[in-house]
Simulated assay, not measured.
Amino acid sequence: MTRSPRLIHLSHEHASALKLALAVRALTPDDPSALPAVAKRIRDTFERELMAHFDEEERHVLPRLETIGRADLAERTRKDHDRLRELAAALETPSVDGVRAFAAALSAHVAFEENIVWEVLEPGAGMSFDPDAI
């Protein structure tokens, strides 16, 4: 489905997040000495890019979901965001399991938003919603 102009930039950010998740999976080191650098890259990218993305969704997208009667999707999104914040913070003490958990949670979250949330918000998805109001 073609994305509305107001959701396109968020979808582009999702593509970047998926690239990060794939890169993290590829970087998960067998050598524990590389682990701090991998964890730092995740934390830096999270703070530089994903925090602003989450904030924008929480300010604009989630209230819209609630307005159209999809508080369930808004709540799931908030829980995902909170979990990703926790996982990123936990990487202050790097672990292979923590890196893998972050990558898996990020991938699952992006798929949820792209395949479920955005479909609800798009025109023609059966909802009377103006995505330009985001």
Results as ranks from 00 to 15, higher is better:
25 R>F: 01
25 R>M: 06
25 R>T: 07
26 A>F: 08
26 A>S: 10
26 A>M: 09
26 A>Q: 11
27 L>W: 10
29 P>H: 05
30 D>Y: 08
30 D>E: 12
31 D>T: 11
32 P>F: 00
34 A>G: 10
36 P>M: 06
36 P>A: 05
37 A>D: 13
37 A>E: 11
38 V>K: 00
38 V>N: 00
39 A>Q: 02
40 K>S: 12
40 K>H: 12
40 K>G: 11
41 R>M: 15
41 R>E: 11
41 R>K: 14
41 R>F: 15
42 I>N: 00
42 I>E: 00
44 D>P: 03
44 D>W: 02
45 T>R: 04
45 T>P: 00
46 F>A: 11
46 F>R: 06
47 E>A: 14
48 R>L: 05
48 R>C: 01
49 E>G: 01
50 L>I: 13
50 L>M: 11
50 L>T: 02
50 L>D: 02
52 A>V: 05
52 A>K: 01
53 H>C: 10
53 H>Y: 06
54 F>K: 03
54 F>C: 08
55 D>G: 08
55 D>T: 14
56 E>Y: 09
56 E>I: 02
56 E>N: 05
58 E>P: 02
58 E>K: 03
58 E>V: 01
59 R>G: 08
61 V>G: 01
61 V>T: 08
63 P>W: 04
65 L>C: 02
65 L>V: 05
67 T>Y: 01
67 T>K: 10
67 T>H: 05
68 I>P: 01
68 I>K: 02
69 G>P: 03
70 R>W: 07
70 R>S: 05
71 A>H: 14
72 D>E: 11
72 D>L: 07
72 D>A: 08
73 L>C: 07
73 L>W: 03
74 A>C: 13
77 T>G: 12
78 R>Q: 14
79 K>L: 15
79 K>H: 11
80 D>Y: 11
81 H>V: 11
82 D>S: 15
82 D>E: 15
82 D>V: 15
82 D>W: 11
84 L>V: 15
85 R>G: 04
85 R>S: 07
85 R>M: 06
86 E>V: 14
86 E>D: 14
87 L>V: 12
87 L>C: 09
89 A>K: 10
89 A>Q: 13
89 A>M: 07
90 A>D: 10
90 A>I: 03
90 A>H: 01
91 L>G: 03
92 E>F: 00
92 E>I: 03
93 T>Q: 09
94 P>V: 08
95 S>E: 05
95 S>W: 06
97 D>T: 13
98 G>N: 04
98 G>P: 04
99 V>N: 00
99 V>T: 04
100 R>W: 02
101 A>S: 13
101 A>N: 11
102 F>N: 00
103 A>I: 06
103 A>G: 08
103 A>D: 10
104 A>P: 05
105 A>G: 12
106 L>Y: 10
106 L>Q: 13
107 S>P: 09
107 S>F: 11
108 A>I: 02
108 A>Q: 09
109 H>G: 07
109 H>A: 09
109 H>R: 06
110 V>F: 01
110 V>E: 01
110 V>Q: 01
111 A>N: 06
111 A>Q: 10
112 F>A: 01
113 E>A: 03
113 E>D: 08
113 E>W: 02
113 E>P: 04
114 E>H: 05
114 E>D: 13
115 N>Q: 12
115 N>C: 12
115 N>H: 10
115 N>P: 06
115 N>V: 07
115 N>L: 13
115 N>W: 03
